[in-house]
Simulated assay, not measured.
Amino acid sequence: MSQADASQVLPDPASPLGDGTDALAATYPDVLDQVALARLYGEPLFALPQDLYIPPDALEVFLEAFEGPLDLLLYLIRKQNFNILDIPMQDVTRQYMAYVDEIRSTNLELAAEYLLMAAMLIEIKSRMLLPPKKPEGGEEAEDPRAELVRRLLEYEQMKLAAMQLKEIPQYGRDFLKATVHIEQSLQPRFPDVEIGELQAAWRDILKRAKLVQTHKITREELSVREYMSQILKQLQGQRFVEFERIFNPEKGSTVLVVTFIAMLELAKETLIEITQAEAFAPIYVRLAYTPV
């Protein structure tokens, strides 16, 4: 040990331990040859204090840890190779109550759920001592242990399934995701292009260009006044003209619509008359005035 280390271990002569030599020899014998167990308020501690108080609960050792009353019952049954379908209630209840009495003395809150199961075991044991009641119909009486056996079997299945899931490798516990950092160069490096690839790309562009077609849509401008004049010319010199003869279907639906609108305008201005002799009879059109 160097002189600097020794100066850190040795107490200060001005400290409450005294003036140095006698107090050091009496309290810390062979200080330079020992290793401090700990430091208390900056001072080295080479031995445990004689008046150190350790709480009784600080050194408890649990040999078996159970997750609940069913886990304890299943442990007692499997440890002694009891048949779970024919549980010896007297032995199991006695061992269970011994464990409950043990944990009641240390942890009353933990013992509460175990006491509920203990009451159930005592009830089953009492029902087994009584003569069974035969149900109506001659059926066999139900075993008082049936409900407990069902719960134990279901719990055992869930426990085995949980153990199997626990054995499956899990990310973060059994393995980690491998990551590799690749440093890229500052200037990008483009791949070389050959002539054949350029030709194939150009053929693909030409093929897509042929699929594109352009359409020019034009709108025909029709004048209602013009068709009104045509209808008046068509009616001149004739007494009656059938309604269907006014229209020319060969010119398209647009012309038909404009012709019909022109006829309505003429009827609105009382320049023509639209007549019908009776219901479902042919419709006729004529001029409402006699031209000079």
Rank of each mutant, 00 (worst) to 15 (best):
L232T: 04
V258T: 08
I261C: 01
Y227S: 03
T214D: 02
G237R: 03
E194H: 13
R225G: 13
E226Q: 13
L198F: 07
G237V: 04
G237Q: 03
R245S: 12
T254A: 13
E242L: 14
S253L: 05
Q234H: 15
L222P: 02
T259V: 03
M263T: 15
T259P: 03
T214H: 00
S223R: 10
S223F: 04
A200P: 00
E242C: 06
F247N: 06
S229L: 08
S223P: 09
E244C: 05
Q199F: 10
R208P: 07
E226T: 15
G237C: 03
Q230W: 07
T218V: 14
R239W: 10
K216Y: 04
L232K: 04
G196H: 09
K207D: 08
W202F: 12
F243D: 09
F260I: 00
V224Q: 00
Q234N: 11
A262T: 04
L206Y: 06
T259D: 03
V258G: 00
A209F: 01
I261E: 01
R219F: 02
T218W: 02
E244P: 04
L198T: 10
Q230F: 07
A209K: 11
G196C: 06
I205C: 03
I195F: 14
E250P: 07
L222D: 04
F247E: 06
M228H: 01
G196P: 06
L211Y: 05
F247Y: 12
L256T: 13
D204R: 13
K207E: 09
T259H: 00
W202E: 13
D192M: 06
L256Q: 11
I261N: 01
D204E: 10
K210L: 10
F247M: 07
R219E: 10
V258E: 00
R239N: 14
I195A: 14
I195S: 12
Q238N: 15
T214L: 03
E244A: 13
P249D: 10
F260V: 02
Q213W: 01
E244R: 13
E242S: 11
Q230L: 11
I217Q: 05
I217C: 00
T254W: 00
E197V: 15
A209S: 07
A201W: 03
Q238T: 15
Q236K: 15
T254V: 12
R219K: 13
E221R: 09
M228E: 12
I205G: 05
A201C: 02
T214I: 00
V255L: 07
A209N: 08
V258W: 01
H215P: 00
Q213D: 04
P249V: 11
G196N: 08
V241L: 10
G237Y: 03
R245Y: 09
A200D: 10
V257I: 04
R239G: 14
E244W: 07
V258F: 00
G252A: 05
V257L: 02
G237N: 07
E220V: 14
V224I: 07
